[in-house]
């Protein structure tokens, strides 16, 4: 059960971390504020879920044990969120893809049988609705902006679409959590995701790719090569001082 929560917690932490890499380097000051804002929302959700996962696991592991002392084979995030930031088009598309999945997910999780998950879901649903709006508006602006921005946006779709299928897959751990009513069934988010992406893409002048082979493996700890580097950086101080309090 706790592993299903870890999957979503890892999604949120990894994506939050990726967004935080932009801080101070965004295309405009407003985005230097907006990107950390979304990162903070995601890290906040991750913390709540890690704490709950650790509690259910019952081995005394807290949020930092789970975030800082597991290696890449133990991380259970989906492949989409670990993709490197790329350009601003890639970052916004990745955000839209993830948000469009999480928004109906959290709305449904507001009926979770687990009190803590219910609490997290209520807050997260509101936050992620804003992420969709923000990222969706950018996808539209860039898709329907200049020739260069349209080409970059189309490239972002081409590069990321292959990671969208994994969002809707339920691992064995997820299926157990779904059966217990702790988390909603991931495949049920498909229709809403298609609707939101379709709507944004029409306005952005983008085409939803068809017949794309969908990559998968993150839920089994089978990641691309970038996650290891991200974790090495993220965990470096904590691991250099095991047991230290910060």
């Amino acid at each position: 059960m706790h592993e299903a929560l870890l999957e979503i917690a890892d999604d949120c932490l990894v994506l939050g971390h990726r967004l935080s890499e932009w801080c101070g380097h965004a295309p405009m000051l407003e985005e230097d504020l907006a990107l950390p804002n979304m990162a903070l929302d995601l890290i906040g959700v991750a913390r709540g879920l890690y704490a709950r996962a650790g509690e259910i696991e019952g081995k005394g592991r807290g949020e930092d044990d789970l975030a800082y002392f597991r290696g890449e084979r133990e991380f259970r995030n989906c492949l989409l969120v670990e993709r490197p930031n790329g350009d601003f088009a890639a970052t916004m598309l990745r955000q839209l893809y993830f948000g469009a999945f999480m928004e109906p997910f959290w709305r449904a999780a507001a009926a979770s049988t687990d009190d803590v998950v219910r609490g997290i879901a209520g807050k997260a649903a509101k936050e992620v609705a804003y992420h969709i709006r923000h990222a969706g508006e950018w996808v539209i602006r860039l898709g329907d902006g200049t020739e260069e921005s349209a080409a970059r946006m189309a490239h972002a779709v081409e590069a990321h679409h292959r990671y969208s299928g994994e969002l809707f897959e339920s691992s064995r751990a997820a299926r157990a959590a779904e059966a217990a009513g702790v988390l909603p069934r991931r495949s049920e988010m498909r229709a809403e995701w298609d609707r939101v992406i379709g709507m944004v893409f029409v306005e952005a002048g983008l085409t939803v790719p068809e017949g794309v082979f969908m990559q998968t493996g993150g839920r089994a700890g089978l990641h691309g090569e970038d996650l290891g580097h991200m974790l090495a950086e993220m965990q470096s101080v904590a691991r250099a001082h095991p047991g230290a309090v910060w």
Binding site: L33, N37, L40, R47, D64, S236, W246
Partner: peptide
């Protein structure tokens, strides 16, 4: 930000830089 040694510190630093 990317190396803050705990999640609490990471969030606080992000918020501060923001």
């Amino acid at each position: 930000i990317t190396r803050a040694p705990s999640l609490k510190r990471k969030a606080a630093l992000l918020a501060k830089v923001q």
